[in-house]
Design a protein around this nucleic acid. Structure first.
Lengths: 218, 218
DNA sequence: CGTTAATATGAGACAATCCTCACATTTGTG
DNA sequence: CACAAATGTGAGGATTGTCTCATATTAACG
């Protein structure tokens, strides 16, 4: 919900975004973010126009700039919002893994399959997230932080599976899996119907095999 | 070298690009393409300006527009040029595989490793290719054709390895490998130093394992 | 009901960029 | 050398897009 980087300083033109304090404002912001998500997904970051976003949110441009002093701020807020949603996915998945562990004594490695599935669904439903995560204007520090957060979530899940994965492989594996999921999403969005489903199947099988081989069976 | 789509019709504003007929023009075109490659790689397609490209090529904007009637035409020509180079890589690799087959009786599956390596090197040396292949304005038909060409190259190599890969797995595998290589390139460009090399290693090991398991040992 | 802070509006200032055009220069050719 | 075709030039037309601002509307609260 926090629309701007008020805490992590170094904002050159310390332009203060007005956070809505009344119900109407909150709704507007939400509608603007929704519209932005759609437009960014359709046209990409650069080609997206603030005018079009405002139009779709049934707001005037002035209204948009009341809450988001810059197109870039709008993108940042939307990106942050998506990250929150993804964090929720990780949390629920971790809870499931925990539950399974308590019942059976150990979490299944199927949790990774489940993760793969859910993230894929999320990314297909919210293509703007990938667009925003790859846009040129994204502050490298923010990008790094976002990646670290996602990798951390995956690493957390990797730690729970049984038989275990060697400690030192967890970090690179998490990075790999994150990229694989993004790749699967791109693959589904881009490619030919006849090729994309078999290719995604091949990808998942490859990952399962690799994971199984990496777990220490001893 | 063919700068425009003179053959495969359906060009709406059938604007005819002037192909250089004198040596000076050929050099200009080459310099412009080089400059474009650099600028596109640095800033992405949309943020790249024709003015900057002309400046780097030490040409005037007028000169640029003499040979490329549109920024988009320039991008298309550059994309085509990169595709040619990549085709050359595939050819040389196929020749090697053929040579190895004649000497030892069967091509090694190490040829895929070699492919991976060479494409990775090419993509790192020519980041503009990825930029152009993913730009929003890229004609879907052209994109499809480019992908098919690359997949075809990989499929050709897959067919030569011994023990063989089942026929019906070749196409999806080729698609998968193509995406994996792109992913590896992005991974190297994007990620943290401490994570990227282990992650790429993990990726290559995963692919090797998957390939080995897919080959019919019988 | 009256005051005031929040929210809404859209014309247009300002800047950036693609591309054109009228004209200049170079170079191959008879 | 004379001529024509190819190539070179850069000011500026035309368009587009971000963001500002003066002003209008809404709604919470005593």
């Amino acid at each position: 919900m926090d629309s701007q980087k008020s805490s992590a300083g170094a904002s050159k033109t310390a332009k203060i975004t007005k956070t809505p304090s009344r119900g109407r404002g909150v709704q507007r912001v939400s509608a603007l973010l929704d519209a932005a998500s759609a437009v960014f997904a359709e046209t990409g970051y650069e080609a997206a126009t603030t005018t079009e976003i405002a139009r779709r949110a049934k707001a005037s441009i002035g209204s948009l700039y009341q809450f988001f002093p810059t197109k870039e701020h709008l993108a940042a807020a939307l990106h942050a919002r998506h990250l929150e949603s993804l964090a929720a996915v990780f949390d629920s998945l971790a809870a499931e893994a925990q539950g399974a562990a308590n019942e059976q004594g150990a979490a299944s490695d199927g949790i990774i399959d489940e993760l793969f599935q859910r993230l894929l669904v999320y990314l297909e439903a919210n293509p703007a997230f990938l667009v925003l995560g790859e846009r040129r204007s994204l502050d490298p520090a923010v990008k790094k932080q976002a990646r670290a957060r996602l990798r951390g979530g995956i690493a957390g899940l990797l730690q729970t599976i049984e038989p275990p994965v060697p400690r030192e492989r967890i970090a690179p594996l998490a990075a790999l899996i994150l990229h694989l999921i993004r790749m699967a999403a791109m693959l589904r969005a881009d490619d030919d119907l006849t090729i994309r489903d078999p290719a995604v199947a091949e990808l998942r099988e490859m990952l399962r095999r690799h994971l199984a081989a990496t777990q220490v069976k001893a």
